[in-house]
């Protein structure tokens, strides 16, 4: 894949979009985990949180590339990406939601960030590796792009999604698209697809993208906020 090919530039755009959507998510979690800490502590924890997110990505990507060359693992990766895409479309649960202890202490905030960094880096790395189609240059590019997004991204990404709600749907669809591509380029499927059904190379991405968006949207619609459940967050401040 050379610099002059369209394929290359499409991959570049895909990687940037993935980094914005998944890296931004990571940045938001780091920022929110530290909100209740005293200001000095907060900045230090954010710094180490961001540092950790980037370090884990760099470590994972080297494993990812060699792992994805093994049979079946691209298919496993594709299934993971489908799940990540669907999850991306889910809004935060109402009230009862998850019971997670509020991180008011330094240790709790650090713990939250480490776990979030590990999980979300894995998401991001699988997606980058899938989009990069075995090109080492593109993988490194994906990592480099994700750094500023994680460092400065949280506000930016939130504003972007507020202004253009479509971003998140496009992001989820893109993850499905990449997953579709991975299913037909796995070591065990690649040759068969090339010989017998080369049309699958674009049919699968399209189908998977549509699948992710429709399942994600359907699940989100079911969890939609009911008018009766509207909670006025300014209730106490009003009186």
């Amino acid at each position: 894949m050379g610099i002059d090919s369209t394929e290359f530039w499409i991959a570049v755009l895909q990687i940037i979009a993935i980094d914005i959507v998944l890296g931004g998510d990571n940045a938001v979690v780091i920022a929110l985990a530290c909100r209740r800490l005293p200001k000095e502590q907060r900045n230090r924890v954010i710094f180490w949180g961001v540092f950790g997110a980037i370090a884990i990505r760099i470590t994972l990507i080297f494993f990812a590339l060699s792992l994805l060359a093994m049979p079946y693992l691209k298919i496993v990766g594709a299934v993971l990406l489908l799940w990540i895409g669907v999850k991306l479309l889910q809004p935060e649960p109402e009230g009862q939601g998850h019971e997670i202890a509020a991180s008011t202490s330094l240790i709790a905030a650090i713990k939250t960030i480490i776990i979030a960094d590990a999980v979300m880096s894995l998401d991001n790395v699988i997606a980058i590796a899938g989009a990069a189609k075995d090109s080492m240059g593109l993988v490194v590019f994906g990592l480099v792009v994700s750094v500023p997004i994680i460092v400065w991204g949280s506000k930016l990404v939130l504003r972007l999604m507020e202004r253009f709600p479509l971003v998140i749907i496009v992001g989820a669809g893109l993850l499905g698209w990449i997953a579709g591509g991975m299913t037909v380029t796995d070591v065990i499927t690649r040759e068969w697809v090339n010989d017998n059904a080369s049309y699958l190379r674009w049919v699968m991405p399209v189908c998977m993208a549509v699948t992710v968006v429709s399942i994600g949207k359907w699940m989100a619609a079911r969890a939609r906020i009911k008018p009766a459940a509207m909670i006025d967050l300014a209730d106490n401040a009003n009186k």
Partner: peptide, 29 residues
């Protein structure tokens, strides 16, 4: 009335709902 868009994706699996509500409240104010 200020309406805050819900946060999407992974955020709610790592951050407690009270902190998220607090965040929305600050942003809304």
């Amino acid at each position: 009335l200020n309406v805050q868009l819900p946060l999407h994706g992974n955020v709610s699996s790592f951050i407690d709902s009270e902190s998220i509500a607090q965040y929305h409240q600050d942003e809304g104010m």
